[in-house]
Amino acid sequence: MAITNYLVLAMILFALGTTTVLLRRNAIIAFMGIEVMLNATNLALVTFARIHGDLTGQVLAFFVMVVAAAEVVVGLAIIVTIFRSRRTASVDDANRLAG
């Protein structure tokens, strides 16, 4: 098995994550799509680290994980705040700024 199979898998997952963000209107599910995209990039980074024999790729993946954790905290807090004021978690209903 060629090692680039991991990269192909990462790309498929990334595309599926993007499509989830584009299509799902439940804010939490769209957010999970973002997590899937981040995981796909991490998988690609780890594979590149292995291809190049350099651990920096793994360090980058580690940083991505940490930033993703921080992002999840803030993102979910925003979703909870919107849910409290609008009683909905659908991204369609957060339209107060629309003209």
Binding site: L9, N39, N42, A49, Q58, A61, M65
Partner: peptide
């Protein structure tokens, strides 16, 4: 994904993936 990390010679990231994600 965590299992694939470990297969990709990144055991530390595999464990972190399970714990954090």
């Amino acid at each position: 994904v965590a299992v694939l990390y470990i297969a990709n010679q990144a055991p530390f990231l595999g464990v972190v993936q399970v714990v954090v994600y």
